[in-house]
Amino acid sequence: MTHSNIARIVVLVLLIAAPLVQPNAYWVHVFSLALIGVILAFSQQLLVGMAGIVSLGQGAFYGIGAYTAASLSIAYKLPFLLAILIGGLLAGASSLLLVPIVRLKGSSLAVATLGFAIIVHLVMMNEDWLTGGSIGLMDIPHPTLFGLPVGGETAFYYVCLAVAALVFLTFDRIAHSRFGRALTAMSQDEEAARASGVAISLYKSKCFLIAAIASGIAGGLYAYHSQYLNPNDFSFQKSIDILMMVIIGGIGSLPGAALGAAIVVLVPEVLRSSGEFRLILFGVMVIVLAGTGNRGLAGVITDLVKYAIARWWHKPAPTTAAARVS
């Protein structure tokens, strides 16, 4: 068994144990929210870390997934998993609207996705018949799985954990495939990738599609999690939050993205006791973590672990090739 597999199992066991260690319903609720954030961060990591696309529009797909799942559940009493799945697919379908803009580069593409997010947010704000407008959508039913109610925060937490783990496995396999290799190549030199036969615009569009599906699924989970949707949950600020998760955790690493998401969601909660200072502290943390370099917190931790191992065993730290999606 490889080191990374051991690490994965350890993390999974810790995550399974989390609601047992901290059974307080409020905290389990927050943990679920963090897992939803983890899925969002994975979707952003696919774009930024693998394909080198900075998207400021993931919040929009998140919202589309959330509203779709909620509406289907309220109006047609669709089962929980099906509603979430359709939410993800519809978010994916809406990402096809970005096809004309994928040929833009760098910050132009980022700004265009931001424009998309702002437009989607305005639709959520103003189309009352569809989204309930600024009042929002209320009375989203409790989720049921195969006819059984997913009772309580802990059960829902495990659903979120299962989905997040599934998304992790999916993206991890993508990273280590011909497709993932082409994305990484594209992010490092577009011309050379094209000359090797990579259809750049098609691959960027596929990347947006997959990321949008994942974000949409996260949105569906969120709808059942909060049972109330407000357009401001999906403003462009959300898109920026999602990008922030990846940068803080470390560009290019899926575990890093998960760590970043946990920080962005949990730290403001942990700091709640410090009252009005909590967001100030959070801002300072963002600045400091952004200063840790491209590999983010994941990079810092990896370095520390390597250093510790080297000290304990009195042998040089193993040097690996580039730190990429692992």
Binding site: I240, M244, L279, F282, G283, V284, V286, I287, G291, G293
Partner: peptide, 16 residues
């Protein structure tokens, strides 16, 4: 891109 995120951090701090 990290400096860009830091500017968001600055924004959060100044707002609050």
């Amino acid at each position: 891109i990290n400096i860009m995120i830091a500017t968001i951090g600055v924004s959060i701090v100044l707002q609050n």
